[in-house]
Design a protein around this nucleic acid. Structure first.
Lengths: 223, 223
DNA sequence: GCAAAAATCGACAATGTTGCCGGTTTACTG
DNA sequence: CAGTAAACCGGCAACATTGTCGATTTTTGC
């Protein structure tokens, strides 16, 4: 990945890159502004991971970012403005993480094993703090309407790019679009459930389900 | 189901029945007490479904239950006392719902189709408000430690009963315990993920995944 | 340099939530 | 028919959170 944050193989994703991650602007002020925004958004993600969506308070974020509430208000007038930035940031960062991980293992691979590799990479991406934040947002958006209005469109936007990038890595998936979509949807849903049940299931059973999913996703593609 | 809230086929479950659902006590006072407690807990579940865990405030619950904050404090001194009651209530009610639904379709069924029937019944149980409340609690327990300390043990407790009841309906599952456990864990995780992704996926793709899960769960058992 | 603009800071009032408490009504007991 | 106990009521202080504002510091354009 280069300084602008684009890995090889990312075609559409760059178009959705949040301004916060758009490299180094010209002026010193703009650079400082971006740095502070980024600091605040990252702090917000920390809050999300540690205390959930209700723990994402302006106070906690400012304190954690080592910034003042005034500075925060300058960049994000209301709490929802910050949340909007967090949504974009989380989607983008998690997707880049996954794609980077996935593409790394892809060089000269037996095509029959592509789905298994993708599934394994996806499970790794699920165990990141970005995904934990994503989960909090996804669940909170079920009950907070203002959040839903930002989250669902963003999810759809990024999902389109996601699928586009995936088919891009293996063009023959276009011919098997339905099978690929099924396997993709299935793995995403199953892994999310796995993550939530993990606490109750324990590590052993979680791993067992993971293997099942991996095998089954591969079989779905061959269909 | 009889008045005491036990359906045919429930062996262990009755032992976990919360006091709120334990039928009709002797004295008028106790009956009134139970009625009020139940009203409060149900109102709390409504809050959970509509506004999530942070929306489960003492004010909102009391107001929705048509009760006063004072009465509430009499039955549940602190908010966490109420939450504890809600946890038990949700687990118990949802499990009864599922078992009732599942056992209803079981009479004289081709054994090969049992898993498919169980999976379908489980998906129906996932679409209830009790499950929505359960989901909110499960996710909130990831970040709220006091909640986790009540929720995780309760989940383990009820899961044991769950598995016990399931094997009870088909004793030959004891011989295939591993396969049954795998299929069970898998379906539970996958359905939870499905529910959360539903908003983004839309109805068509959600249904497709549902069918995949159903078929695959059946194949898991035959293994 | 100097004024304008950007970034930052701390404090304020308004609101909402929690736990607690004194007082009241209602039912049980002897 | 008291006297006790359970159930219920409304209000209070303490605290947290949000949005807003005026003032201050830092950077930029001229």
């Amino acid at each position: 990945m280069d300084e602008n944050g684009s890995a090889s193989g990312e075609r559409m994703l760059a178009a959705l890159r949040p301004a916060d991650l758009a490299g180094t602007p010209a002026s010193w002020q703009q650079r400082k502004s971006v740095r502070t925004r980024l600091k605040l958004v990252e702090a917000a993600i920390d809050c999300l991971v540690e205390s959930g969506y209700p723990g994402l308070t302006t106070q906690a974020v400012a304190e954690r970012a080592g910034s003042s509430r005034g500075a925060m208000h300058h960049h994000f007038p209301t709490r929802l403005d910050l949340v909007a930035a967090v949504i974009d940031h989380v989607f983008y960062k998690r997707m880049r993480l996954y794609l980077g991980d996935y593409l790394k293992d892809l060089a000269g691979l037996d095509p029959a094993k592509v789905v298994a590799v993708a599934t394994a990479a996806h499970w790794r991406s699920v165990q990141t703090r970005e995904y934990a934040a994503y989960l909090e947002l996804a669940v909170a958006s079920r009950t907070e309407t203002e959040l839903e209005q930002m989250f669902v469109p963003a999810a759809r936007r990024y999902e389109e790019v996601w699928l586009s990038e995936m088919t891009g890595t293996f063009p023959f998936w276009e011919e098997q679009w339905e099978a690929m979509l099924r396997a993709n949807d299935f793995v995403i849903a199953a892994h999310m459930g796995m993550l939530i049940q993990r606490t109750v299931l324990g590590e052993t059973r979680t791993q067992t389900i993971g293997e099942i999913i991996e095998q089954f996703a591969a079989s779905l593609y061959r269909t």
